[in-house]
Design a protein around this nucleic acid. Sequence first.
DNA 1: AAAACGGTCAACCGCATAACC
DNA 2: GGGTTATGCGGTTGACCGTTT
Length: 257
Amino acid sequence: MVRTPCCDTSGLRKGTWTPEEDRKLIAYVTRYGCWNWRQLPKYAGLQRCGKSCRLRWLNYLRPNVKRGNYSMEEEETIIRLHEKLGNRWSAIAAQLPGRTDNEVKNHWHTNLKKHFKDKPSEAKYDSKKESAEVNKRGKSKEKEETKLNDHNLPLILESSPSYSPQEPASSDQSSSINKYNTVKSTKDSVTDDDNSNKASFQAYEVDSGSFWSEPFFWENSNMITSTTLDSSGYEFAEFPFLNGEMDFYDQLDGFYF
DNA sequence: AAAACGGTCAACCGCATAACC
DNA sequence: GGGTTATGCGGTTGACCGTTT
């Protein structure tokens, strides 16, 4: 089987995401949903491969992604599930609302694994010690979180009253979304989190015909006030909630980041 | 003060598999 | 049924940052 490369290596950016890229991705996904990750960067004006966009969204930008210190309950859950499931991080993360598989995996490797390494035979987890270390770690992390929370991005949450996505649209389009919404995990971990995500994206299934031809310029948009050209020549929408006079991240208030 | 070291975590890569044609 | 495409997952990497020497 010939597999097409996930990235067209010519001209696509790699590495750390810039605030501007985040802004474009958030703006596009909150507006149109993630109907097709491979096509999305083109329409969102991003020089990234779809895979990279998906990862960035799921692990970092998505609403309700919980960041920062793990509670003891969460850590105990990870440990318990890891004993039971092994390295099935997505299944473990599914039991921890707001946590992503990547984050759980990182947390395991950096914080929890050592308890097993250090004390392979005794009670595998010293929660008091871990708690102390978490607190210690929290000091430095707190600073970073404060910074992140200060970003104040007014992400539009599905649950927020002002969130009224008008979705993409052609029949092709909505079929993609339907596919996303109805696809079943083969790895036995269809979770509340999965379902809530699916449910939230179902809200995008509003019929209309012009999405493919006008991917980012929704005529009846009540959110997009104007469009502008970025340096790469892509046109992208400007959102009222992304006030150009403020730092992008300064507008991120009240959202997990 | 600065170089070396170690920990953390965002992001990439390759593979597996579901979905589609 | 077989080829192709899209998505999801887990392993790994490397940049960044704090700590130690």
